[in-house]
Write a protein that binds this DNA or RNA. Structure first.
Length: 350
DNA sequence: AAAACGTGGGG
DNA sequence: TCCCCAAGTTT
């Protein structure tokens, strides 16, 4: 019985760090070599980057750091303003948690970020990945950082035959080998993520350019693109509802959505509930006696697709307490989430 | 522990 | 149009 020899961590780490020293991406939140990372920038960028692309985050990071240059400023911020500035980035619980976390840091830590992974893990919106990432990147603490990139890189390096998500424990086991005794913890974590983003990509990985191809079992077999194996996703259902374009002169009725609803805490337009689409039409109650405009929008969320039929009416007063008038002229700049931005754009341009 | 939670871009 | 994906967390 022969066991596979231990993974050559040191040689792997050196090869990857050598590559990183030459090819690291320049990112707005990333400290330049030799400069001390700004924990606020690291934290803010990590929250924004959760399930989001680097390209999408760029402008939001610039805007947030300009308006709120540090945690203290963010902790004191008007929450509605924060939600407005987050509009369009998605996963709005992140913005609600961002505010809560900033307040946690000012109240429980005197405005100074904790450096230990286990303390970071207690912060709102900071889970296992983000706690490890902040500990490593902001404070150069040894931490095993595992995001989607590093899962993919690891699955290929070890040619893992079990599909995600059930392979996560095995991937973690191998990732711990990669990070063993790492000194430049933050650089190493970022080098793995940069590798995943630019070379070891989900499709068409550029294996010939890979600085660690000689450590990679999938490269050896020539089938890196097959990994990580994944279970098939189920199809998402279609739901349908009505959205109301209620005007008074040049003003539009908007509402701040309840925090426990979809798009919670965000500005929106009044809608019915969003029910599963049936053939038997019109399960929805029309609360506002509004007229069918014949217009509609569709929007795909992560777990369902929504068809929203647009109904219009003129009103004299605000229908409910949580509602307010916004000048139609300003509505496209009011911080609507994309779903409602589509409705407003359609109504204004048609 | 599976499902909820957004969005935009690419193939 | 459809599917996949992008620095995950919370319940």
């Amino acid at each position: 019985m022969s066991q596979r020899h231990a993974f050559p961590s040191k040689a792997f780490q050196n090869a990857l760090l050598r590559w990183y020293d030459h090819h690291a991406r320049t990112l707005p939140w990333r400290a330049v070599p030799g400069q001390t990372p700004n924990p606020y920038h690291v934290w803010l960028s990590e929250i924004m980057l959760q399930q989001t692309t680097v390209a999408a985050v760029g402008p939001y990071f610039q805007k947030f750091t300009q308006i709120w240059p540090n945690v203290h400023a963010l902790a004191k911020a008007n929450p509605e303003r924060v939600m407005k500035e987050w509009a369009g980035l998605g996963y709005y619980a992140r913005a609600r948690n961002l505010i809560a976390c900033a307040q946690q840091i000012t109240q429980e830590y005197g405005g100074v970020f904790p450096q230990e992974e286990l303390d970071l893990l207690k912060l709102r919106g900071v889970g296992p990945y983000t706690a490890a990432a902040i500990a490593a990147i902001a404070f150069n603490k040894q931490a095993v950082v595992i995001d989607g990139n590093i899962e993919r890189v690891t699955a290929r390096l070890f040619r893992i035959q079990k599909p995600l998500p059930s392979s996560k424990p095995l991937i973690r086991h191998h990732a711990m080998d990669l990070f063993k005794n790492i000194k430049r913890s933050g650089d190493f974590a970022q080098s793995l993520m940069d590798l995943g983003a630019t070379i070891c990509t989900p499709q068409n990985p550029k294996c010939s350019e890979c600085p660690v191809k000689n450590f990679c079992e999938a490269f050896e077999k020539g089938d890196a693109a097959l990994y990580p194996l994944k279970n098939k996703k189920k199809k998402i259902p279609v739901r349908e509802g009505k959205v109301f374009w209620l005007t008074k002169n040049k003003q539009l009725v908007c509402e701040v959505r309840e925090k426990d609803r979809m798009l919670g805490g965000m500005l929106g337009l009044p809608t019915t509930d969003w029910d599963l689409k049936h053939d038997a039409s019109d399960v929805n109650r029309d609360a506002f006696k509004a007229i069918d405009t014949g217009l509609s929008i569709t929007h795909t969320f992560s777990h369902f697709k929504l068809i929203l039929k647009i109904y219009a009416a003129q009103v004299k007063v605000l229908p409910k307490k949580n509602m307010k008038f916004i000048p139609i002229h300003d509505i496209l700049d009011s911080g609507l989430p994309s779903l409602f931005q589509k409705v407003a754009r359609k109504m204004i341009t048609s």
